[in-house]
Amino acid sequence: MTDVVEATALRRTFGARVALEGVDLRVAQGDFLAIMGPSGSGKSTLLGIIGGLDTSYQGSLKLFGQATSVLSDRELSLLRGKRIGFVFQAFFLLEHQSVLDNVLVPSLFVPRTDAKTAALQALDRVGLADRAADRVDTLSGGQRQRVAIARAIAHQPSMLLCDEPTGNLDKETASRIVEIFASLHREGTTVICATHEDRLAEVATTTLRLSEGRVSKEQAS
């Protein structure tokens, strides 16, 4: 199967602090990778590099077979906008906009002809089609995260990157979010989640454990 992510000897430092050291990683199309580890172990840093948000690293990284180091800002932005979806712990929704407008944000920068239809389908997928016209500041935490997921999947990305997606949610709501990720994975989307959530690790096909910036254990489920 094609490797979606192929990272070799990744190293990232912030001043004198080493956040990642010698990380090798291969993620195949359709994999569900859970990145686990204590706070400060380098999970979010690794996700930022894999997502093309952080380019100040050492080592090599290929996304979808392309070496990211040779891509221009425009090419890397286009890659993110077309093939990668992001879900964050803090949702990052535009508070004064409607649910639908939030899901449509990526289409402002990478236009699609069927953006609205795709956004409504994504909302239907996360069970919020009936709230499309509501402002996001009227939603609960779980609903907000579902809007963020809809925003991340509306353009049908090949890879979904999630950074502690259930971190701000209660158990019941978190379970529902986990189920959405599992379902997306079953349909062929590559999912990489940085998480503390054991339930997410349970549905993942591979678990990568980081400790002080190094891979301490990689285990297939």
Binding site: G51, L53, D73, R74, S77, L78, R80, G81, K82, F86, A90, F92, L94, V105, P106, L108, F109, V110, R151
Partner: peptide
């Protein structure tokens, strides 16, 4: 800044 970060994450270029 967070909104700018989000825009960049979902495909906005520096020029955008």
């Amino acid at each position: 800044r967070a909104t700018i970060g989000l825009y960049r994450a979902v495909g906005a270029t520096r020029l955008d």
